[in-house]
Simulated assay, not measured.
Amino acid sequence: MQNNFLENSCTFSLLEPELLQNCKPFICGNNDLDDFFLNNSALYTAQLLGKTYCFRLDSDPSTIVCAFTVANDSIKVNFLPNSRKKKVTEAIPHIKRHRSYPAVLIGRLGVNEQFQSHHIGDILLNFIKDWFVSPENKTGCRFIVVDAYNQSKILHFYEKNKFQALFSSEAQEREYLTLPDTHPLYTRLMIFDLINLL
């Protein structure tokens, strides 16, 4: 599919309960994601914890092509190991370095099963990146953060889209999260520096 498929062939809107009721079931093929979009996204919005948006097909507005949830976040570099702190701050002029940097968290991101394997996820990530460097963006935001499922396919998807792991190893991330060595690491924190788009 062409890179501008979402903007040329779909309508962008908030994913609200009424819209969900009037649309076909939005199934991504991941039970956690499907449950979130169907049952919890409205609760997050109501509690001001995040906002969920979607793209619907213009030719069939009852079909949700993809959806995502965003929330405010930050990267607190003082809590990072020195090597990772340097990785985050190396492109920031010394005079502008701080203890934390504004970020937006992609809390959930899903693509309708019918549209998977058509690079919709890549197109959606590009849309989100452009959205947060747009002159219309109302707040400063240096990084996009995602807590990606710790599965090779998912990690590769974000790496392909220029996201980097915030920690160099799972052991380092467990230490940061104060998890025991035996505890499974279900997700990996990954970041994208929006300055790369300017």
Rank of each mutant, 00 (worst) to 15 (best):
L124P: 04
L179D: 07
L177E: 12
F37N: 04
H94A: 12
T11L: 14
P93V: 09
R97N: 13
P184Y: 11
K129C: 12
T11D: 15
Q2R: 15
G110P: 02
Q2E: 15
K138W: 09
L48K: 10
S100V: 05
V146E: 09
G121N: 01
E113Y: 00
C141E: 11
Y53M: 03
A67G: 08
L80M: 10
L19D: 03
P61V: 08
I191L: 13
F115H: 02
V65S: 02
D122H: 05
L194G: 02
S13Y: 06
L80H: 12
V88M: 06
R97C: 12
F132R: 10
P180K: 11
N31T: 13
M1S: 09
C23R: 04
N40S: 10
D32A: 09
T69S: 06
N22F: 01
L49T: 01
N22Y: 01
L57K: 11
Q164E: 12
C10F: 09
Y158T: 03
V104S: 09
R108H: 08
V145Y: 12
L189C: 08
I120P: 01
Y176N: 14
I195G: 01
I64T: 05
E159F: 00
I64D: 00
F192D: 04
K87H: 14
I154E: 00
N82H: 13
P102D: 15
F55S: 04
L194I: 03
H94I: 12
E175F: 11
S41G: 02
D193T: 07
N112M: 01
H183F: 09
K24A: 10
L43E: 10
R174H: 11
T69G: 00
P180N: 12
T45I: 00
L20A: 00
D58M: 13
L194Q: 02
C66M: 00
Y186A: 13
L6A: 12
P17R: 07
E7V: 09
E136W: 03
D181H: 11
P61A: 07
F5A: 05
Q172N: 14
N4P: 03
C23A: 06
S168W: 03
S134P: 05
L109Q: 02
L109W: 04
I191V: 15
